[in-house]
Structures are given as C-alpha cells and as structure tokens.
Amino acid sequence: MSKAIFELVDELPKGGITVMALNSLDFLLPGQWQNTVGFDNTIRTVTGETDESLIQQIGERAVTLYNDKSQGYQRAMWLYDTVDSASGMLGTAALANRIGQDTFLGFLKNITPKPENAQSIDLGVKLVTEIVAFCQINGIPGDSVGDFLAALGDYSGESLMRMAALVCFDGIIPLGPEFAGKALDMLKGTNPSELEGNQTFNGVKDLIPGGNPTAQLGFITQSFDSVKGWMTNFVSSTGATRERLLGGLKGFIDFTDDKADYVGALLDMNVKYYRHTGVQTLARRLVERAYAEL
C-alpha cells in the first residue's frame, strides 16, 4: 500500500541538502518559498484556520481525495517521486562520463551518454513531467500545454520554486546560460532510440503522452519549445547566472571552481527537489479542495 498523504507531508525534511539547495535560490525569488512541512501545519498555513475540529475535517477530506486513485493525485506523486530518482541515475552516468574525459578511464565515455545530450533529454523529460503532474493535480486534459502555459504565469510558492530549480540546477548549471536554446537544438537532434536509452525518460515514460517514443519525443520537444520563452525570461528577469548560482551553492557544498562541472552531477544525485516541492504542491491543492468542498 502506498504511503498516506499526511505521512508524506509530515516526513518532509526541515533541512538537509535538498532544502539548502532550494534556499540557495532565494536570491532569485526573495521570500517566494517557505519550506512548509507537516500536514496540519500545511492546513493552517493554506487556510488560515485555527479551529482544531475544522482542521480535522479538512485533513480527513484531503486524505480521502488523495486515496481515491481516480482523482489523479497519486499519479502526480508517482511522477514527482520517480523523475527525481530516475534522474539521479543520470547524475551517476554523467559523473562516470566526466571521469571518462579526465582520467585514464577513457573507455568509459564510450559507454556513458554525452552529458549535454543526456542533460538536455533530462531537462525536457522533467519539464514534461511537470506539465503532466500539473494536469493530474489540477484536472486539465493530459496534454494541454496551452493551459499549462497560462497557469505557469501564475505559478507561485513551491511550484515556482520547482520551476526555478529546474531552470537553475538542470539548465544553467550543467548547460550554461544559453541552456534553453542549446537543449532545444539537442532535443531536435535526438532520435527516439536515444530517448529510450535515457534513464529519466524510462522512469516516467508510461505517463508521458504519445504512446510511443517517436510521438513522446515530439511531445517533449514541442512542450520545451513552448516553455522556452518563459525559461529565457525567467533567467533575464531574475539575473540568474552560473557564477551566482555556484556562489550560492558554495555556502554548503565544498568545491573549487575547476570542479564546478561536477556540481551538476552532484546535485542530480542528491537534491530531490521535484519530490520535495511536489509533495508540498500536492498537499496545498488537496487542502484547498478539501476546504472548499466541506
């Protein structure tokens, strides 16, 4: 049996590498994200209510909604959870590839994907995961990129932080400031069999619209193209640069500038930001709905 929603929210960490990495992005979105943890605490924060019997009722309705599989919330949870664990494996592959380039283990680069290509697929798959999870949670037909784009303009709190982390940790740090154009070109040059060889894609492919890798690649590329403008605008309006991001991370990860290439892989393996903020988004939406339906 899958875990209860109140347990997932109660078990969210108050600190640790994921929370520290997300906090290092605060300078881009000052005060946008508070690390709200705990189920009852989330109910109080979202609704502003303090009456214990009302909080109990809201919590019970939220638990009920989450447990009904037909409501889509568990699928969204699975997506957020899976895309993080699957992309962590890419981190391992990318690290192995760096070793391949820098040391005597030259042969490794023949058996691991090129980091930028793999990273571009990873970025595209993660973006599409957000779109699909958004639709599962908020109830808009599964492949509606247009509806997602409209909602993206209104993203706030932990949802906006998740997208910021996607742009920064999976875009700017591994691929550089021109990551959006670069990743789009890479996706356009990817063939379906390369997509099938990508760990992140394989983790979540069952819920990516399209039905086969060719159509799924088309959906990923098209979605990325649609959201590229938002991502580019995010970079220019917040002033995010690789140097500033790495500077923020230096507060808690010890690395020298010549090892900055490894930071992307390190984040990939250790920072579970999709899952962490995904649980927070799910809890928030469930609580809002429960409060409205009572």
Binding site: G59, V63, N67
Partner: peptide, 20 residues
C-alpha cells in the same frame, strides 16, 4: 498514532467508497 489513521484505513482499503 495520527489523528488521520482511521480515515486513512477506511478510504485506502479495497472497495472503499469513491471520494467523488
């Protein structure tokens, strides 16, 4: 124990009433 244990049990068992 959680204050939501009972509702969790009731709504996650096989054949539970749908939420909607």
């Amino acid at each position: 124990p959680s204050r939501y244990d009972q509702v969790q049990q009731e709504t996650s068992r096989r054949g539970a009433e749908p939420a909607v």
